[in-house]
Design a protein around this nucleic acid. Structure first.
Lengths: 210, 210
DNA sequence: CTTCACCTTGACCATACGGTCAGGAAAAGA
DNA sequence: TCTTTTCCTGACCGTATGGTCAAGGTGAAG
């Protein structure tokens, strides 16, 4: 797999192979689910012998856990723009943009994440109960402040967050359905833009922020 | 498959066992995914020997297909209220109500459906390309009419439909996450009502229908 | 009662899966 | 150079899975 003539250094080898395996695993887990995924398939996808996977990741669960944690990090990071913004319009607008971009750029990761939660979060339950719970509480308070300041309608902050998650995540998880309804064509750049704008405008108007 | 001349008692046995198996299968497929589900587990859940499952459903795929088709019927049926309504407010309001009820009453079915679509719709791709495509085109036209008549803002009908699907489906598929963020408690009747009203009011206001 | 189609199930089978391991190759360190 | 550490992998193993089957049970039609 290493076409460059230059021999790789130790830490380079490890980093490269782990990344290769994680990428292949993300794809296979997204397409087949945890139960349907096989180490052999991931190995083939990564172009490595199966035994080599077990050298870097002891078990299938370990590998899966790493994939889930990776996407969780990205998912949570999209929240940064939420804090930097001066008001609901900018915050929610930027958040929708960021999450739509995740749905588009990390399609497989998004699916793995959805699958994990859907099956009861067997490996990241603790994250949900700590990191995510804290994050959500903080953002709900922020939204409540905007409500109290009269900058938007008195909506339930949690249900608004769920709506943001749902609408943006949908374009990844149900991307296949959307593509089928789009005459089998993936959404074009323009259509992605239209989707983003549609989501943003309906929600922002819906909560009385514009 | 149905023989009309067959004595009633026999039919009852078959109907009862098929229903039992389908219910158990729906639960196991929802919790473990297609790949993670095992016939043995479904059999145990149904209180029948494994070989008996294979008497009624030749293969795991057959059983899975039946589960998916069942929920698809229910899912599509929720559209009825869409047509009977005189305008966007009533139609979308009733549709959200119906779909939220499905998320609540058919939680496992909803998850199986989501999982099926997420993994590329291996068994119901033809439904997506025929029944669903037709249904969507019809509803999109209806919405466009309302737009043309000035009864709502000029939103993209398809993205509005995706938003309706996403927001309602989310309460099933990500129900575990929502429950975790709700201090580990399932949503109460009041909270389900609040969720429904929240979704309806934000979307209806967001599209300028109220 | 006899017959016959339908239902039931323990035991069994081939396969594929996750995981292991011994031993060799290659880089790093001395 | 020689030694140590890390990396690589074909061959292998125990187990669990989807699926089969033959033998026996059961309701009801004739």
């Amino acid at each position: 797999m290493n076409e460059n003539a230059r021999p790789l250094r130790r830490n380079e080898i490890r980093a490269q192979n782990e990344a290769l395996i994680l990428q292949a695993a993300e794809m296979v887990f997204a397409e087949a689910g945890f139960g349907g995924a096989t180490m052999q398939l991931i190995a083939d996808m990564a172009g490595l012998p199966k035994a080599n996977l077990h050298y870097y990741f002891a078990t299938k669960e370990d590998l899966y856990r790493r994939v889930v944690q990776n996407i969780f990090e990205i998912w949570l990071h999209a929240a940064d723009c939420f804090d930097a913004a001066p008001g609901p319009v900018e915050a929610i607008g930027a958040y929708v943009d960021a999450k739509m971009e995740i749905s588009r750029r990390h399609l497989n990761g998004s699916k793995v994440w959805a699958s994990e939660v859907m099956h009861g979060a067997p490996v990241i339950q603790d994250y949900l109960e700590t990191t995510l719970r804290d994050w959500t509480a903080g953002r709900a308070r922020l939204i409540q402040n905007w409500v109290d300041e009269g900058r938007m309608d008195p909506v339930n902050p949690r249900h608004l967050l769920y709506m943001l998650w749902a609408t943006t995540q949908h374009y990844a998880d149900f991307g296949h359905q959307i593509e089928t309804l789009n005459d089998g064509q993936p959404l074009s750049d323009a259509e992605w833009l239209a989707a983003k704008e549609s989501v943003k405008s309906i929600i922002l108007k819906g909560i009385g922020a514009i």
